[in-house]
């Protein structure tokens, strides 16, 4: 048996404490963000900021996106869409997005129903778009390597490589993927890769006259989106899925799915 003096006890306690502190510090140093930065390298990492409180449901973003990216006009397919949420005073929730809101909302007819103004407790519009997740499940499930993430965090689909199996359509928790009616391959928002790589805004951002949609480099602490995410009350959709969505919303209600 060991003879434990007070000095001995204190010395060993200090050692044990120091040993316990080391793994905690090491864990802190290796946050997922840092690992992601190592994996994805430096340079810009694009993200959305969507201020839902300003959206009037004009659908100009959807119109511009469909025209810019040649998504057949006469189909409901769209890379972005605007949802209408109407909550009635008796607690019913009406959600619709006719034709992805391609023609905007011009009538008070949620789900084809005439709801008198006095029976509406609240209502709002929510633009939806690909979240360009940090851990995109849609890319992970692709069996042929047609879906991928660029250095800037943009999730893209290789049309020449996609076999159209549709796993990614099911894997996306946000329902942003669909089949292109002409190319017959998986289709999604490209963050207007052809525009942003030329220094332009995505088509939907330009088309919005209300300043709902903003985009920028989330790695740059001085960018507008970084400042908003840091200083304002933002949220992301379906955080519990762990995909780390990069579309940050201002003014989302809890009924928004």
């Amino acid at each position: 048996m060991m003879n434990w003096s007070r000095r001995h006890f204190l010395k060993n306690s200090a050692k044990a404490l120091a040993a316990a502190a080391v793994p905690a510090a090491a864990y802190e140093l290796l946050t997922p963000e840092i690992l992601a930065a190592v994996r994805k390298g430096k340079g810009p990492r694009w993200a959305w900021v969507i201020d839902a409180t300003k959206c009037v449901g004009c659908g100009m973003c959807v119109q511009a996106c469909k025209r810019e990216n040649e998504i057949p006009w006469e189909t409901t397919a769209s890379r972005t869409w605007v949802e209408r949420y109407v909550v009635t005073t008796d607690g019913r929730v009406l959600i619709d997005s006719p034709n992805a809101a391609r023609d905007g909302y011009t009538k008070n007819n949620p789900m084809g129903e005439q709801v008198p103004a006095e029976q509406i407790a609240k209502g709002f519009f929510v633009p939806k778009v690909c979240n360009h997740c940090e851990n995109p499940p849609c890319v992970q499930v692709c069996p042929v390597g047609a879906s991928h993430v660029t250095d800037e965090g943009v999730v893209l689909v290789d049309r020449s490589w996609c076999i159209g199996c549709g796993y990614c359509l099911q894997a996306c928790p946000f329902g942003t993927r669909f089949f292109h009616p002409v190319h017959k391959t998986a289709e999604k928002c490209t963050f207007c890769y052809h525009r942003i790589t030329k220094g332009m805004n995505p088509a939907c951002v330009d088309a919005c006259a209300f300043g709902v949609r903003k985009w920028g480099d989330i790695r740059d602490p001085n960018s507008e989106v970084s400042r908003i995410v840091r200083t304002e009350r933002v949220t992301v959709l379906k955080e519990e899925y762990g995909t780390k969505p990069h579309a940050f919303y201002i003014g989302l209600d809890r009924i928004v799915r």
């Binding site: 994996r39 992970q140 879906s147 991928h148 893209l156 020449s160 490209t190 890769y193 052809h194 332009m200």
Partner: peptide
Amino acid sequence: HRGDYTYGWYRTGNEDDWKAVQVKHKG
């Protein structure tokens, strides 16, 4: 690519394919 099989298994030329899409809305 980038040592990342989960998200970096693809054809790099596809990025150029997407960059080559015609800009229709000129501003």
